[in-house]
Amino acid sequence: MPFQRNQVDELSSKGEAIVRRAGEIVHKHWDRPKNVQYKGRIDLVTETDTAVEDYLTRELSLLLPKARIVAEESAADVDPGDLAWIIDPLDGTTNFAHGLPHVAVSVGLWGKGRMIMGFIHVPKLNEFFSAVRGRGAFLNGRPITVADAARLDATVVATGFPYSVAEDLEQILPPLGRVLEATRGIRRLGAAAVDLAYTACGRFGGFYEYGLKPWDTAAGWLLVEEAGGKVTRTDGTTPYGFDSPGILATNGTLHAALAEAVEGEVLGK
Rank of each mutant, 00 (worst) to 15 (best):
217 T>V: 02
172 I>G: 09
162 P>L: 03
214 P>M: 04
139 L>A: 08
180 L>I: 01
118 G>M: 08
184 R>V: 03
149 A>I: 01
157 V>N: 03
204 F>T: 08
123 P>D: 01
158 A>Q: 05
176 L>N: 01
184 R>W: 10
122 V>D: 03
129 F>P: 02
134 G>T: 05
116 I>D: 01
196 L>Y: 08
169 L>P: 01
155 T>K: 05
122 V>W: 11
204 F>E: 03
220 G>D: 04
214 P>I: 08
193 A>T: 11
174 P>H: 14
217 T>I: 00
138 F>E: 00
141 G>H: 08
206 G>S: 06
125 L>Q: 10
177 G>P: 00
171 Q>T: 05
166 A>C: 10
171 Q>R: 13
208 Y>T: 11
131 A>F: 08
162 P>C: 02
215 W>N: 02
158 A>D: 11
193 A>Y: 03
118 G>S: 12
147 A>G: 05
157 V>S: 06
118 G>C: 11
184 R>G: 13
132 V>A: 05
141 G>S: 13
217 T>P: 06
179 V>W: 09
226 E>Q: 07
142 R>D: 14
204 F>P: 00
218 A>Y: 06
176 L>C: 09
196 L>V: 13
213 K>W: 15
122 V>M: 07
143 P>R: 15
134 G>R: 01
119 F>Y: 12
171 Q>K: 09
203 R>F: 14
213 K>G: 04
143 P>T: 00
224 V>M: 10
126 N>M: 00
210 Y>F: 12
146 V>N: 04
226 E>M: 01
189 L>P: 01
156 V>Q: 12
209 E>D: 00
206 G>H: 08
153 D>S: 14
216 D>A: 02
196 L>P: 08
117 M>S: 06
136 G>S: 12
160 G>M: 11
138 F>I: 01
135 R>S: 03
130 S>L: 11
136 G>C: 05
191 A>R: 04
129 F>K: 00
232 T>I: 05
227 A>K: 10
118 G>Q: 10
147 A>E: 14
207 F>T: 15
159 T>K: 12
124 K>W: 06
167 E>N: 12
183 T>M: 03
153 D>H: 06
129 F>Y: 15
126 N>H: 11
120 I>E: 02
172 I>P: 10
175 P>A: 14
212 L>S: 02
140 N>Y: 07
199 T>W: 00
225 E>I: 07
212 L>G: 06
156 V>C: 02
164 S>C: 11
145 T>G: 10
147 A>W: 03
172 I>E: 13
184 R>N: 09
175 P>E: 09
214 P>H: 05
167 E>P: 02
173 L>G: 07
169 L>A: 11
138 F>C: 07
204 F>V: 06
196 L>M: 05
188 R>K: 07
154 A>D: 15
177 G>C: 06
153 D>N: 13
171 Q>H: 10
199 T>M: 13
164 S>L: 12
132 V>H: 03
227 A>C: 07
200 A>N: 04
125 L>P: 00
181 E>K: 15
216 D>Q: 02
148 D>V: 04
181 E>D: 14
166 A>K: 15
163 Y>F: 15
118 G>V: 11
232 T>K: 01
130 S>R: 14
189 L>T: 08
135 R>Y: 00
185 G>V: 13
178 R>N: 12
161 F>D: 13
204 F>Q: 05
187 R>Y: 11
221 W>Y: 15
230 K>N: 07
142 R>I: 14
150 A>F: 03
199 T>C: 08
203 R>W: 15
